[in-house]
Amino acid sequence: MAESREHTFTGVRGLNTVREWPHDRPRYVVVLVHGYGEHIGRYEYVADRLVRHGAAVFGLDHMGHGRSAGDRVLIEDFEDVVTDVHTVEERARAEHPGVPVVVIGHSMGGMIAARYAQRYGAGLAALVLSGPVIGDWAVVPALLAFEEPPDIPIDPATLSRDLSVGEAYAADPLVWHGPFKRATLEAFATTLAEIAKGGTFGALPTLWVHGEEDELVPLPGSRGGIEAVRGSDLTERIYRGARHEVFNETNKDEVLDDVIAFIDRALSA
Protein backbone atom coordinates (compact mmCIF):
# COMPACT_ATOMS: atom_id res chain seq x y z
CA MET A 1 0.00 0.00 0.00
CA ALA A 2 1.06 3.59 -0.60
CA GLU A 3 2.70 5.31 2.35
CA SER A 4 0.67 7.91 4.19
CA ARG A 5 1.17 10.64 6.77
CA GLU A 6 -1.14 12.65 9.00
CA HIS A 7 -1.39 16.25 10.11
CA THR A 8 -3.99 18.35 11.91
CA PHE A 9 -5.57 21.74 11.34
CA THR A 10 -8.11 23.82 13.21
CA GLY A 11 -11.39 23.46 11.36
CA VAL A 12 -14.61 25.39 11.75
CA ARG A 13 -15.50 23.58 14.98
CA GLY A 14 -12.28 22.07 16.26
CA LEU A 15 -9.15 20.13 15.47
CA ASN A 16 -9.37 17.97 12.34
CA THR A 17 -7.04 15.18 11.27
CA VAL A 18 -6.02 14.88 7.62
CA ARG A 19 -4.33 11.91 5.99
CA GLU A 20 -2.14 12.37 2.92
CA TRP A 21 -0.92 9.72 0.48
CA PRO A 22 1.85 11.73 -1.21
CA HIS A 23 3.15 11.65 -4.75
CA ASP A 24 6.32 13.51 -5.70
CA ARG A 25 5.11 14.65 -9.12
CA PRO A 26 1.34 14.10 -9.29
CA ARG A 27 -0.67 14.46 -12.47
CA TYR A 28 -3.67 15.36 -10.34
CA VAL A 29 -4.79 15.70 -6.72
CA VAL A 30 -7.69 13.77 -5.20
CA VAL A 31 -9.64 14.95 -2.16
CA LEU A 32 -11.45 11.95 -0.64
CA VAL A 33 -14.63 12.60 1.37
CA HIS A 34 -15.70 9.73 3.64
CA GLY A 35 -19.16 8.66 4.77
CA TYR A 36 -21.19 8.75 7.97
CA GLY A 37 -19.74 7.15 11.09
CA GLU A 38 -16.50 6.01 9.42
CA HIS A 39 -13.08 7.57 8.86
CA ILE A 40 -10.61 8.23 6.07
CA GLY A 41 -8.41 5.31 7.12
CA ARG A 42 -10.93 2.94 5.52
CA TYR A 43 -9.85 4.26 2.08
CA GLU A 44 -6.30 2.88 2.00
CA TYR A 45 -7.01 0.62 -0.99
CA VAL A 46 -8.69 3.42 -2.95
CA ALA A 47 -5.85 5.81 -2.20
CA ASP A 48 -3.25 3.23 -3.19
CA ARG A 49 -4.87 2.71 -6.61
CA LEU A 50 -5.06 6.46 -7.17
CA VAL A 51 -1.44 7.08 -6.13
CA ARG A 52 -0.29 4.36 -8.53
CA HIS A 53 -2.28 6.13 -11.23
CA GLY A 54 -0.39 9.36 -10.57
CA ALA A 55 -2.40 11.16 -7.88
CA ALA A 56 -1.53 12.81 -4.61
CA VAL A 57 -4.41 11.95 -2.29
CA PHE A 58 -5.77 13.89 0.68
CA GLY A 59 -8.70 13.17 2.99
CA LEU A 60 -9.83 14.38 6.38
CA ASP A 61 -11.76 12.81 9.21
CA HIS A 62 -14.86 15.00 9.48
CA MET A 63 -15.69 16.69 12.74
CA GLY A 64 -16.90 14.10 15.24
CA HIS A 65 -15.43 11.26 13.17
CA GLY A 66 -12.30 9.15 13.32
CA ARG A 67 -9.35 10.97 14.86
CA SER A 68 -10.89 14.44 14.57
CA ALA A 69 -12.28 16.33 17.55
CA GLY A 70 -15.92 16.78 18.49
CA ASP A 71 -18.83 14.82 19.91
CA ARG A 72 -19.08 11.56 17.99
CA VAL A 73 -21.03 11.84 14.72
CA LEU A 74 -22.44 15.22 15.73
CA ILE A 75 -22.66 17.54 12.73
CA GLU A 76 -24.98 20.48 13.22
CA ASP A 77 -24.29 22.13 9.86
CA PHE A 78 -22.80 20.36 6.86
CA GLU A 79 -21.77 23.71 5.40
CA ASP A 80 -19.06 23.68 8.07
CA VAL A 81 -17.85 20.30 6.80
CA VAL A 82 -17.77 21.63 3.24
CA THR A 83 -15.64 24.51 4.48
CA ASP A 84 -13.26 22.07 6.21
CA VAL A 85 -12.93 20.06 2.99
CA HIS A 86 -12.11 23.29 1.18
CA THR A 87 -9.29 23.91 3.67
CA VAL A 88 -7.89 20.51 2.70
CA GLU A 89 -8.15 21.40 -0.98
CA GLU A 90 -6.35 24.69 -0.37
CA ARG A 91 -3.47 22.87 1.38
CA ALA A 92 -3.30 20.38 -1.49
CA ARG A 93 -3.12 23.22 -4.01
CA ALA A 94 -0.40 24.94 -1.99
CA GLU A 95 1.69 21.75 -2.09
CA HIS A 96 0.96 21.11 -5.78
CA PRO A 97 0.29 24.44 -7.51
CA GLY A 98 -1.35 24.22 -10.90
CA VAL A 99 -2.26 20.54 -10.54
CA PRO A 100 -5.93 19.70 -11.31
CA VAL A 101 -8.13 18.62 -8.39
CA VAL A 102 -10.70 15.81 -8.32
CA VAL A 103 -13.16 15.32 -5.44
CA ILE A 104 -14.43 11.81 -4.65
CA GLY A 105 -17.19 11.41 -2.05
CA HIS A 106 -18.91 8.27 -0.73
CA SER A 107 -22.36 8.04 0.89
CA MET A 108 -22.69 11.01 3.29
CA GLY A 109 -19.42 12.07 1.70
CA GLY A 110 -21.21 12.03 -1.65
CA MET A 111 -23.73 14.50 -0.24
CA ILE A 112 -20.90 16.68 1.07
CA ALA A 113 -19.10 16.43 -2.29
CA ALA A 114 -22.27 17.40 -4.16
CA ARG A 115 -22.69 20.49 -2.02
CA TYR A 116 -18.97 21.15 -2.41
CA ALA A 117 -19.36 21.12 -6.18
CA GLN A 118 -22.16 23.66 -5.90
CA ARG A 119 -19.97 25.96 -3.81
CA TYR A 120 -16.51 25.33 -5.25
CA GLY A 121 -17.02 23.33 -8.45
CA ALA A 122 -15.56 26.03 -10.69
CA GLY A 123 -12.11 25.07 -9.42
CA LEU A 124 -12.47 21.31 -9.89
CA ALA A 125 -11.41 19.10 -12.78
CA ALA A 126 -13.87 16.29 -11.96
CA LEU A 127 -16.31 14.95 -9.36
CA VAL A 128 -17.04 11.34 -8.37
CA LEU A 129 -20.11 10.44 -6.27
CA SER A 130 -20.27 6.92 -4.82
CA GLY A 131 -23.60 5.75 -3.39
CA PRO A 132 -24.37 9.39 -2.54
CA VAL A 133 -26.94 10.45 0.04
CA ILE A 134 -28.78 12.84 -2.25
CA GLY A 135 -32.39 13.34 -3.23
CA ASP A 136 -34.79 11.21 -1.18
CA TRP A 137 -33.10 9.36 1.69
CA ALA A 138 -35.91 7.74 3.66
CA VAL A 139 -33.73 7.20 6.74
CA VAL A 140 -33.89 10.90 7.67
CA PRO A 141 -37.69 11.41 7.95
CA ALA A 142 -38.13 7.94 9.44
CA LEU A 143 -35.73 8.64 12.31
CA LEU A 144 -36.82 12.25 12.80
CA ALA A 145 -40.31 10.95 13.51
CA PHE A 146 -38.91 9.89 16.91
CA GLU A 147 -38.10 12.44 19.60
CA GLU A 148 -35.02 10.35 20.39
CA PRO A 149 -33.70 8.44 17.35
CA PRO A 150 -33.69 4.69 18.05
CA ASP A 151 -30.43 2.80 18.19
CA ILE A 152 -30.61 0.83 14.95
CA PRO A 153 -27.07 -0.18 14.05
CA ILE A 154 -25.94 -0.60 10.46
CA ASP A 155 -25.95 -4.23 9.42
CA PRO A 156 -22.33 -4.85 8.35
CA ALA A 157 -23.53 -7.37 5.76
CA THR A 158 -25.15 -4.52 3.79
CA LEU A 159 -21.77 -2.94 3.05
CA SER A 160 -20.34 -5.49 0.62
CA ARG A 161 -20.72 -9.01 -0.73
CA ASP A 162 -17.20 -9.48 0.67
CA LEU A 163 -18.28 -10.23 4.24
CA SER A 164 -14.78 -9.57 5.58
CA VAL A 165 -15.45 -5.88 4.87
CA GLY A 166 -18.38 -5.89 7.28
CA GLU A 167 -16.42 -7.85 9.86
CA ALA A 168 -13.58 -5.31 9.79
CA TYR A 169 -16.10 -2.45 9.99
CA ALA A 170 -17.78 -3.99 13.04
CA ALA A 171 -14.42 -4.44 14.79
CA ASP A 172 -13.04 -0.97 13.94
CA PRO A 173 -12.83 1.20 17.08
CA LEU A 174 -12.76 4.39 14.99
CA VAL A 175 -16.14 3.57 13.41
CA TRP A 176 -19.24 4.83 15.24
CA HIS A 177 -21.56 1.95 16.11
CA GLY A 178 -24.20 3.89 18.06
CA PRO A 179 -27.38 5.75 17.10
CA PHE A 180 -27.77 8.87 14.98
CA LYS A 181 -27.82 12.20 16.80
CA ARG A 182 -31.00 14.16 16.18
CA ALA A 183 -29.09 17.33 15.32
CA THR A 184 -27.14 15.42 12.68
CA LEU A 185 -30.36 14.09 11.13
CA GLU A 186 -31.76 17.62 11.03
CA ALA A 187 -28.55 18.78 9.35
CA PHE A 188 -28.95 16.01 6.75
CA ALA A 189 -32.49 17.21 5.98
CA THR A 190 -31.34 20.81 5.65
CA THR A 191 -28.45 19.94 3.35
CA LEU A 192 -30.47 17.65 1.11
CA ALA A 193 -32.96 20.48 0.62
CA GLU A 194 -30.13 22.96 0.02
CA ILE A 195 -28.59 20.73 -2.65
CA ALA A 196 -31.95 20.27 -4.38
CA LYS A 197 -32.30 24.02 -4.83
CA GLY A 198 -28.60 24.80 -5.18
CA GLY A 199 -28.29 24.47 -8.95
CA THR A 200 -26.62 22.02 -11.31
CA PHE A 201 -22.95 21.09 -11.65
CA GLY A 202 -22.80 22.80 -15.02
CA ALA A 203 -20.02 21.47 -17.25
CA LEU A 204 -18.14 19.78 -14.38
CA PRO A 205 -17.36 16.18 -15.45
CA THR A 206 -19.24 13.99 -12.96
CA LEU A 207 -19.20 10.23 -12.41
CA TRP A 208 -21.97 8.59 -10.39
CA VAL A 209 -21.30 5.02 -9.19
CA HIS A 210 -23.85 3.02 -7.19
CA GLY A 211 -24.55 -0.55 -6.14
CA GLU A 212 -27.75 -1.96 -7.60
CA GLU A 213 -28.47 -3.78 -4.33
CA ASP A 214 -27.60 -0.89 -2.02
CA GLU A 215 -29.94 -1.18 0.98
CA LEU A 216 -28.40 1.65 3.00
CA VAL A 217 -28.74 4.34 0.33
CA PRO A 218 -31.18 2.83 -2.16
CA LEU A 219 -30.58 3.60 -5.81
CA PRO A 220 -34.06 5.03 -6.63
CA GLY A 221 -33.86 7.72 -3.95
CA SER A 222 -30.45 8.91 -5.13
CA ARG A 223 -31.45 8.94 -8.79
CA GLY A 224 -33.91 11.78 -8.28
CA GLY A 225 -31.28 13.80 -6.47
CA ILE A 226 -28.73 13.23 -9.22
CA GLU A 227 -31.22 14.31 -11.88
CA ALA A 228 -31.83 17.56 -9.99
CA VAL A 229 -28.17 18.59 -9.94
CA ARG A 230 -26.63 16.89 -12.98
CA GLY A 231 -24.91 19.14 -15.41
CA SER A 232 -24.00 18.60 -19.04
CA ASP A 233 -21.35 15.91 -18.40
CA LEU A 234 -22.65 13.01 -16.29
CA THR A 235 -21.41 9.42 -16.52
CA GLU A 236 -23.39 6.74 -14.67
CA ARG A 237 -22.21 3.28 -13.58
CA ILE A 238 -24.64 1.00 -11.73
CA TYR A 239 -23.08 -2.30 -10.62
CA ARG A 240 -25.32 -5.37 -10.70
CA GLY A 241 -25.54 -7.14 -7.35
CA ALA A 242 -23.27 -4.65 -5.58
CA ARG A 243 -24.12 -3.32 -2.13
CA HIS A 244 -23.37 0.04 -0.53
CA GLU A 245 -19.58 0.30 -0.53
CA VAL A 246 -18.70 -0.22 -4.17
CA PHE A 247 -15.06 0.70 -3.44
CA ASN A 248 -14.97 -2.31 -1.08
CA GLU A 249 -17.05 -4.68 -3.19
CA THR A 250 -16.03 -7.99 -4.72
CA ASN A 251 -15.69 -6.09 -8.02
CA LYS A 252 -13.88 -3.11 -6.49
CA ASP A 253 -11.12 -3.26 -9.10
CA GLU A 254 -13.71 -2.92 -11.88
CA VAL A 255 -15.19 0.08 -10.07
CA LEU A 256 -11.81 1.73 -9.57
CA ASP A 257 -10.86 1.00 -13.18
CA ASP A 258 -13.99 2.93 -14.17
CA VAL A 259 -13.09 5.79 -11.84
CA ILE A 260 -9.55 5.98 -13.23
CA ALA A 261 -10.76 5.86 -16.84
CA PHE A 262 -13.22 8.66 -16.09
CA ILE A 263 -10.51 10.78 -14.49
CA ASP A 264 -8.25 10.23 -17.50
CA ARG A 265 -11.03 11.43 -19.80
CA ALA A 266 -11.75 14.47 -17.64
CA LEU A 267 -8.10 15.45 -17.45
CA SER A 268 -7.57 15.03 -21.17
CA ALA A 269 -10.53 17.31 -21.86
Rank of each mutant, 00 (worst) to 15 (best):
G135A: 01
V139P: 09
D162M: 13
E186F: 03
I152P: 02
V57T: 13
A193K: 14
F201A: 05
P26K: 00
M63R: 10
A56Q: 09
D151I: 15
P100F: 02
D77W: 07
V165Q: 09
E236Q: 15
V139M: 08
F9N: 13
A171M: 03
P179V: 11
R119A: 10
T17W: 12
E95S: 13
Y239G: 01
H7K: 11
Y28W: 12
D136A: 01
P150K: 15
V33G: 11
G199W: 00
Y239R: 02
V133M: 08
T235D: 11
P100L: 10
F9L: 14
I154F: 08
A69Q: 12
V165S: 06
N248L: 03
R52P: 10
I112R: 05
A168T: 11
W137Q: 06
W208K: 10
P22F: 00
H177K: 13
V175R: 02
R52T: 12
N16Y: 10
I263P: 00
R93I: 13
L129Q: 01
E227W: 13
Y36P: 06
F188E: 05
E95K: 11
G131E: 03
L32D: 05
E213M: 05
G70Y: 11
S164K: 13
G109Y: 00
D172C: 07
V85R: 10
T17Y: 05
P100D: 06
L32Y: 07
V259G: 01
V12D: 14
V229P: 04
T190S: 04
P156M: 15
E44N: 12
D48A: 12
G121F: 00
V255C: 02
R243I: 04
G110Y: 00
I75V: 15
K181E: 09
D258T: 02
D84T: 14
H177L: 06
V88L: 02
L185P: 13
T190G: 14
R115F: 05
I195A: 02
A171Y: 05
E249G: 03
G59E: 03
M108W: 05
P150L: 15
A92S: 04
K197Y: 07
V103I: 07
G14C: 12
A2H: 05
G231W: 11
G225A: 01
P132L: 01
E167N: 10
V140K: 01
V51P: 04
G66V: 03
L256M: 13
V31I: 14
V175F: 07
E167R: 14
L15I: 02
A142Y: 07
D48P: 07
S107C: 09
V209P: 01
R93K: 14
V29T: 08
A242T: 05
T17I: 12
E95F: 09
V29E: 10
E6S: 08
E89Y: 02
G224Y: 04
E3T: 14
P149Y: 11
H65G: 11
A157T: 12
G241Y: 15
D80R: 15
V12R: 15
G123C: 00
A47Q: 04
G54Y: 08
G135S: 03
A2D: 00
A55S: 09
E38K: 03
W137A: 06
P173H: 08
D214H: 07
Y43Q: 04
G202W: 02
V81Q: 12
R25Y: 09
L219H: 03
F247T: 15
T10Q: 07
S68H: 01
E213W: 08
K252G: 05
G199V: 00
W21S: 04
